[in-house]
Amino acid sequence: MIDNSTEIALSLQGISKIYGPSCPACIQKTGPEMGTNICPECGSIVACADISLDLHAGEILGIVGESGSGKSTLVKCLYFDLEPTYGEAYLSYYGNGRLNIFSETSQKKRYIRNHIMGIVYQNPHMGLRMNFSCGGNVAEKLLTADCYHLGKIRHRASELLTKTEVPVARMDDLPRNFSGGMQQRVQIAKAMANNPPILLLDEVTTGLDVSVQAKVLDLIKSLQWELGISMLVVSHDLGVVRLLTNRTAVMKNGRIVEIGLTDQILEDPQHVYTQLLINSLL
């Protein structure tokens, strides 16, 4: 539950995702101290475990960690792409922050996906329908919000594409033919179509040219700045996190090992793993 007096947009409580049979030892025998996310007893993969954190309204929170540490798993659980094995999540924008969104009906979950949260996937193929035009991709979201006016849909789509700096002239082209950076920007436009108060961004800049990266990062910054959207930004790039976020959580073997102010994480890392991560950067 979220206490209404605090300005928490999203509260995660003990989220775990275990692949495999799972046994009583799974949680205890995995994690950063054990140096693995594979349970030695039953072989299950503890992709993430005991994830608790609060995302404040208007905040960009970073999640960093090495490949396989569970970042995408966490984000996909939040967007209901995966069902968490344990855990609860509360949204201040839904049911007054009193309802665990994981135990809502799938219809309600769909409402949350389309109206309260937007996602940008690590892989554009997950977020975009490549055989729909890029306007159609944005339209899909608008149509879930019962906007059945073609003119209005196209107007809103071109507004969003302008904002994300995708040439409006290419609105009716297939994103398949777009560059990686443009695909990510179409994903962002799509994610924002219904003005969700929360965005989940998974490695938005990975694999992009440096100059394109810069544009995408500037866009994200301006979205927070102008629209006050709360965001969870997943990246294994500390530079991205340094630029975008005020607070950062560090993940390792499926756990959060440290969470703090981003400048503190960078300059005074507490956990062994964070120190390694920061040092490998320099």
């Binding site: 769909r110 729909f132 159609g136 991709n137 899909e140 879930t144």
Partner: peptide
């Protein structure tokens, strides 16, 4: 969840 079909018409 009919938005996909709607997008088909849009396209």
């Amino acid at each position: 969840d009919y938005s996909k079909l709607w997008v088909y018409l849009y396209e």
